[in-house]
Amino acid sequence: MSTTALWIAVLAACALGFVAKYAGYLVPESLVDGRRRSRIIGLLPVALLAGLLVTQTVGGDHGIVLDARLAAVALAVVLLWLRANFVLVVFAAAALAAGLRALGWG
């Protein structure tokens, strides 16, 4: 592929990506102000991030994959239950996943 064609693709992706981001800020308040819509929009981030979390934890190239990520997320849940702080949770999860993979699992 020519450099020009590649640049066009890169810049098109960038432009469309920004349009998607900015669109959310441009929706008029009158459209989102009702009680129901307001609640739905308030719940959108937690719904989308929970969906993202699932795809990050068990998503593979061709379907669901159970591996070291799932064990690490389970450890994170336990640590959060025990009120561990954010950095510890993230480090412990990474260490467990890295350790399990070093042992040849997941």
């Binding site: 990050q56 990520r69 849940v77 993979r101």
Partner: peptide
């Protein structure tokens, strides 16, 4: 990055950030 468990760290960070909700 998987060898360092960084993909799992990203997932764990999102768990921690959703947790209060």
């Amino acid at each position: 990055p998987r060898a360092w468990g960084l993909d799992a760290a990203a997932a764990a960070a999102f768990v921690a950030l959703i947790w209060p909700r």
